[in-house]
Design a protein around this nucleic acid. Sequence first.
DNA 1: TCCCGAAGTTCGATTTAAATG
DNA 2: GCATTTAAATCGAACTTCGGG
Lengths: 353, 353
Amino acid sequence: MVKTSVITIRDVAKESGFSSTTVSIVLNNAPLARYIPPATKKRIEKAAKKLGYRPNLFARSLRSKRSHTVGVMVFDMTDPYCTLILRGIENSLYQSSYLPILTDVQNERSRFERYLEMLLDRRVEALIVLANWLFVDIDVLADLEKSSIPTVMIGRELRTDTVSSVIVDNEIGAHFAVEHLYQLGHRKIAFIRGPKTLADSAPRWQGIRSFAKSTGLELDPRLILDLPESQDPISSFEAGYKLTEELIKRKRPFTALMAFDDVTAFGAIRALAKAGLRVPEHCSVIGFDDVAACSFYTPPLTTIRQPMEAMGAMAANLVIEGINGVLEKREISAVHRKLAPELAVRESTRSLP
Amino acid sequence: MVKTSVITIRDVAKESGFSSTTVSIVLNNAPLARYIPPATKKRIEKAAKKLGYRPNLFARSLRSKRSHTVGVMVFDMTDPYCTLILRGIENSLYQSSYLPILTDVQNERSRFERYLEMLLDRRVEALIVLANWLFVDIDVLADLEKSSIPTVMIGRELRTDTVSSVIVDNEIGAHFAVEHLYQLGHRKIAFIRGPKTLADSAPRWQGIRSFAKSTGLELDPRLILDLPESQDPISSFEAGYKLTEELIKRKRPFTALMAFDDVTAFGAIRALAKAGLRVPEHCSVIGFDDVAACSFYTPPLTTIRQPMEAMGAMAANLVIEGINGVLEKREISAVHRKLAPELAVRESTRSLP
DNA sequence: TCCCGAAGTTCGATTTAAATG
DNA sequence: GCATTTAAATCGAACTTCGGG
């Protein structure tokens, strides 16, 4: 006999001999359930299990106005930087039984708008935005603010009091990086800085400058170049390659190179190799991020590790707190967290002889 | 004045002066809409826009029994192999206005089961499973079959007639790879094969054998090693490294190495470098997959490119067809598609002098 | 008053059947 | 019968109210 497999709460009520009200109270363990005798509960639970009852989430959500989902918007999923963050988010939400609804905006404004609309239409209870590249401008922020659900942005420092944020401490990270090179004896260090419009660029440079000032390290302007603007994470490889070629061409000797991020560092290593310079024998190279490829690169890349899973987990936890706040009608204001990165020493850097 | 922003269809009805029935018919462009005069439509649409009406999807889905979502299950999101496939899926679904609900099973059976349950509870209309690593066993298949919604699996050949599949043509891919090495003059070729339990392994080896037979290329058993079982994609790097060390230790000369996949190839290159062997000067290396890191590796890795976006798009299209089939009560049987990969020549291979 | 359970209303849409001129 | 519109039933669960012991 083929059962249509649409068991409703009424079927369970009939099977157990109680009303659907009681079934609902028992299965949801609602406050009123404390009045219901264990025997009744047992019978209802047995009936539910026997029939394989699964509540219809549409009906439940329609009535309760809750979806138990969290919208996650990534600006570019193919960027290796983001999958570990997503894992952190996922694991935290999983524990709290929220389902993440992940959308990939692909750096397109139109997709951002459409997906935001779709997520709000589906009544996600909160929003996590992973701004791993450019184009988080005023408009986007405004759209997010007017959504009026708990929102946290990862990777972008904010000063709003409506949207929370989780970022890495770029200044300290950059500090760690130069410090590492400095301690290895390097004094002639080339820098490939991030694009000016990217929020991470300034604090990283600030970290370098303050380290230089405190130690007397000289920053030679002829060894400093900037990445151009771009939306495409891959393009920072090309740019790293070209800028390093340019550095070499300048004939200004350097024994180490600090790249804005790992992919830029990969481009730099390629250019050095092309010029017959081995890493780290002729030149040390350090990156930033610690994407997965770092550990299987040849040579393995020394870099600054962003605590990606932790950042994802923190964002998820903030958002869950936010949801709870809304449920309890507490007024919760945005928080801004900055997580410390750490130095990951591998084989692309070495001390000067 | 603060509006609670919960505009219902009745508000639109009141504003436009028609009943909610008519509003529903017009806004959904339902069959009956053809009887409704343009003037009425205009007024209703204007009222809806004026109020900023957004239909409540829970109510809609409850009544219509449709969710406009597709469940996507990935076995390991951090595997670089899968993000491009996901992009293919996403882009296809986006065009058809289906929302993908992506879950990362993290190679855990318990997560698979829980997420499958969650997705079915949310009434996804179809399922795409991205089996990028091991452990797709009988049980999993059985779970999928009994879900009785259109399902397609990517990356795993199936013989069922309930679950569709999309895979790459491994045999031809491997053929292309050896052929490339052979044409470059290589005759002493080492092979690191895939783990025996992985479905891709056998056909790839078959492609190599048939090429060898047809050209008279000799396959030296002392130059052939197998990757061990594992669930972790990163571990194939370690394994590639160790096995290549082993190959070198055997003192059996070889001028080229074909790795099971790109990450294994990266491990092999590392081992060769450690032994003082440069790629491609002393040894050519070829991989399989064409993950993003290939193009920024040093040297850039020659490999067999899987048409990942196309595979994702095809899976999505199959699933959409399946959904349409169900809606029209057509009985649609599973289809099995095999897509051709292509050779991507970069700089890790070169012709023998 | 406390405990237990049920009847009936509600959420916001779609859909059926029927009423109007 | 036809074009146009609508009242009322429905989807499945949660919540409010009420009654009996």
